[in-house]
Computed example of a mutant assay.
Amino acid sequence: MPTAPRPATTARPSLTERRKAETQLEIARTAAALFAERGAAVTADEIARAAGVALRTFYRYFRTKEDAVAPLLAVGVRQWLDDLAAPAAGPDAPPVRETLERAARRALTPADAPETEALHWTRGLLRAMPGDPALRAVWHRVHHDSEEALVPVLARLTDADPPAVRLAAAAANTAMRVAVEEWAAGDEPEDGPRGPAELVTHAMRALTAGLPELDGRKG
């Protein structure tokens, strides 16, 4: 019986790259907290000072003050994509539809205090966005990028043709976005019955119902 091909190993980021990513995420957390508290009135200088970095360092990493929140918004997206990129294999592997739903729930279920705090900050950011079109543009850019990244992941999981794969990626990504936006507009806790994980389940099922290609997976 032939063995399954071994997945390609990903090179571990260098120490410099890891430090850069940590600095960017720390600035992003600070920016998110300030935007949630004060809205568009926040300046890049205030974000830099609160994060403990020079303004020159801030602009080395980010083009605008709104761009600074992108690393935080992308954390859940990366977790979701990483989860999907390493699915269970073998004859008992669930269909793609179920794999998508499970991964989405895990991505929106905070496992610890930092993840709970990140969702809290995301809620604050989403509430600040109506008064800051540039901040809203960052949110939509993050989701556009996640949809593009989802296409090759789904293509490896299903035998569907390219248009169906794109539709599935758009539907799944929209379900994630709508679930977080709906949760952020209310006052339910992160892990409640109307939390983002529950909302994404309903949204995912509704938006992918017309895609029978997701009922199986690549053999």
Rank of each mutant, 00 (worst) to 15 (best):
Pro5Asp: 06
Thr23Ile: 03
Ala70Ile: 04
Pro95Ile: 03
Thr16His: 02
Ala88Leu: 14
Asp67Leu: 05
Val96Phe: 14
Glu26Ile: 00
Asp82Asn: 12
Val96Gly: 03
Pro2Glu: 11
Pro94Leu: 10
Thr57Val: 07
Ala36Met: 01
Thr57Ile: 07
Ala74Cys: 00
Ile47Tyr: 03
Ala107Trp: 13
Pro110Tyr: 14
Pro95Asp: 12
Asp83Leu: 11
Arg38Asp: 07
Ala50His: 14
Leu34Gly: 02
Met1Asp: 13
Glu17Phe: 00
Phe62Arg: 03
Ala118Thr: 12
Glu101Gln: 11
Ala113Ile: 13
Asp112Asn: 15
Trp121Met: 12
Arg12Tyr: 15
Arg19Met: 13
Thr57Leu: 05
Glu117Leu: 11
Ala50Val: 04
Leu126Asp: 02
Tyr59Leu: 04
Leu25Thr: 09
Lys65Trp: 02
Ala107Arg: 13
Leu72Asp: 02
Leu15Pro: 01
Arg60Pro: 00
Pro91Arg: 08
Arg6Met: 06
Ser14Cys: 03
Pro87Thr: 04
Glu115Thr: 03
Leu125Ile: 10
Ala104Cys: 10
Glu46Asn: 01
Asp82Leu: 05
Thr116Ile: 04
Leu55Val: 12
Ala33Gly: 15
Glu22Pro: 03
Glu101His: 00
Ala104Met: 15
Ala11Ser: 10
Arg97Lys: 08
Thr23Cys: 05
Val96Met: 06
Ala54Phe: 01
Thr122Gly: 03
Ala128Asp: 08
Ala107Leu: 10
Leu125Met: 03
Ala8Tyr: 14
Val53His: 10
Ala86Arg: 15
Gly52Ala: 02
Glu46Thr: 10
Met1Ile: 08
Arg49Asn: 03
Ala118Pro: 07
Gly76Pro: 08
Pro114Met: 10
Gln79His: 15
Ala4Phe: 11
Thr3Asp: 09
Arg123Ala: 13
Arg29Pro: 02
Arg97Trp: 07
Phe35Lys: 01
Ala85Arg: 15
Leu119Met: 06
Leu84Tyr: 12
Glu46His: 02
Arg12Ile: 05
Leu55Asn: 01
Arg127Thr: 13
Ser14Glu: 12
Asp45His: 06
Ala70Tyr: 09
Ala104Ser: 15
Trp121Ala: 06
Pro71Tyr: 09
Tyr59Gln: 01
Arg18Asn: 07
Ala107Asp: 06
Ala40Thr: 11
Val75Phe: 00
Ala74Phe: 04
Asp92Arg: 11
Arg78Leu: 07
Pro95Gly: 12
Glu17Ser: 12
Lys20Gly: 09
Ala11Gln: 08
Thr16Cys: 00
Thr23Gln: 13
Phe58Pro: 00
Leu108Asn: 01
Leu72Val: 10
Lys20Asn: 09
Val75Gln: 14
Arg105Gln: 11
Pro87Met: 04
Ile27Met: 04
Pro5His: 09
Leu34His: 09
Thr9Asn: 01
Glu117Phe: 07
